[in-house]
Amino acid sequence: MSWGYTINRARDIDMDRNDMTISKLILEKIPSLQGCIACGACVATCSTGALTKYSLRKVHTLVRRGEYSGLLDELNKCMLCGKCQLVCPRGINTRAVISLIKRELGDHR
């Protein structure tokens, strides 16, 4: 019998519970990602972002908080054109970041 009610999951990012293993591994492999100042230039220049909600800034920030769910699908929207890498003022190798996150989250397996 369904009454049409559900229990809402809490929306908070629970830093006391999230598993940071993959997050830590990614930062260890590409420490320059730690230097992101969240300026948004990558998002601003992104062709995919112009047509979808895809945001590299958001995706890698989610990774840094241990929130991985749905990210693989997001990253699969990227065409790896590399414009973000051209504009990044902190010189982050964004394409390497994208490939690494995809690999660590289970793509290419």
């Binding site: 929306r11 908070d12 990012i13 629970d14 830093m15 006391d16 920030t61 908080r65 929130e67």
Partner: peptide, 11 residues
């Protein structure tokens, strides 16, 4: 976490 647009809590 304004960059993610969701509330955050931590101890």
């Amino acid at each position: 976490d304004t960059l993610i647009g969701r509330p955050l809590k931590m101890t």
